[in-house]
């Protein structure tokens, strides 16, 4: 059992930056957990605090039920893959992979054997004698993974491991990583700023901003019901429509239309959130003029200019794109309209 438990963890850098702020988090044993957030929100710092490379200024970190807050990184039995892979340039692939065993003073034959076995499992068999500089980005990533696995730790921390790969390789690596994690049953914390990556791979996602967790949940929860406007903005490959609106007499007045809030709601100014994917053409709803059509592959993103200076985006299937300049009336699918408090930005 090697779950991770953080209780009230803050990490403050010597220059006073509070990169992680009183954060509570539990990652279950064997879970694939993604930390998602914009640049500078403290993801790397949180990961380093779990690994022990930064000391928590307050709060406690437990791994597998044992308090490790004040322990050195080496004894926490946590393997980490760095964003730049941090492969040792003067060692061969084989020596790199076997490094965790060298630290434990394992005999040379055992090291070579472990390196060969781990490398073979990751498709690196022919590269054992190369140096890191002679490998492609994808191969380097797999060597870094192999090295982390050779440590046979139960917790694996990955800091944006796919960000150095090109788009194609990234998709392959995603599937590969996910299968590997399933097979080994490792508790994995995965840092990324790519929301699509997090949605695709993780069992659960934490969306962070400014050192705090904004929302914690399954990819489906986070995608369908973002807890606040920050998360709503961040998640989704096409930006969510966030429109100023007013609830009056149980109806939502937005961009000249009256929509069903999907439940009772007190009269108040609100922000309406609707994903472009959840909008479709309807006899009644928000009416606007098509101004831009962007091709996204299977779908197209259509931008509508609506009354009250509001722009609304929606996706339409291929071959059904309306001509630019035409007038369209759209409505959200039932239950897909979210209302956020216009002051706090919280889901109401």
């Amino acid at each position: 059992m090697a779950g991770i438990e953080l209780a009230g963890v803050s990490t403050v850098y010597p220059n006073g930056v509070r990169a992680v702020d009183a954060l509570d988090l539990t990652v279950a044993d064997g879970e694939f957990f993604a930390l998602l957030g914009p640049s500078g929100c403290g993801k790397t710092t949180l990961l380093r605090t779990i690994a022990g490379l930064e000391q928590a200024s307050s709060g406690s970190v437990s791994i597998g039920g044992a308090d490790v807050t004040r322990l050195e990184p080496g004894v926490r039995k946590v393997a980490m893959v760095f964003q730049d892979y941090a492969l040792f340039p003067h060692m061969t692939v084989s020596e790199n992979i076997a490094y965790p065993l060298r630290v434990r003073r394992a005999p040379k034959p055992e090291r070579a054997e472990t390196a060969a076995r781990t490398a073979a499992g990751l498709g690196l068999a022919g590269l054992l004698e190369r140096r890191p500089a002679q490998l492609s980005g994808g191969q380097q990533q797999r060597v870094a993974l192999a090295r982390a696995m050779a440590m046979s730790a139960e917790v694996l921390l990955l800091d944006e491991p796919l960000s150095n790969l090109d788009a194609r390789l990234r998709l392959e690596a995603r599937t590969f990583l996910k299968r590997l994690q399933r097979d080994l049953g490792l508790t994995t914390v995965f840092v990324t700023h790519d929301q699509a990556e997090a949605l695709a791979m993780a069992d659960r996602i934490a969306v962070m901003s400014e050192g705090r967790i904004r929302q914690l949940g399954s990819p489906r929860d986070v995608f369908q019901r973002p807890a606040d406007t920050f998360v709503a903005n961040f998640i989704g490959s096409t930006p969510m429509n966030l429109l100023p609106a007013q609830v009056r007499n149980g109806r939502v007045e937005v961009a000249g239309a009256h929509l069903d809030p999907g439940g009772p709601h007190p009269d108040a100014p609100v922000t309406v959130g609707i994903r472009p994917e959840y909008l479709h053409e309807a006899p009644e709803g928000i009416t606007g003029t098509v101004s831009i059509v962007e091709n996204l592959g299977v779908t197209s993103l259509v931008t509508l200019e609506c009354p009250q200076d509001v722009t609304v985006g929606l996706t339409v299937p291929e071959h059904e794109e309306p001509p630019v300049g035409s007038v369209l009336t759209v409505a959200p699918r039932p239950g897909r309209l979210l209302l956020y408090d216009s002051d706090t930005g919280q889901l109401t």
Partner: peptide, 21 residues
């Protein structure tokens, strides 16, 4: 790069090992 040393530390290397290796 510091990450070389940090990754060695994560794998359990002592300060002397970090220096020598």
């Amino acid at each position: 790069p510091r990450s070389y040393e940090e990754s060695a530390r994560v794998f359990g290397a002592s300060p002397t090992q970090v220096l020598l290796h």
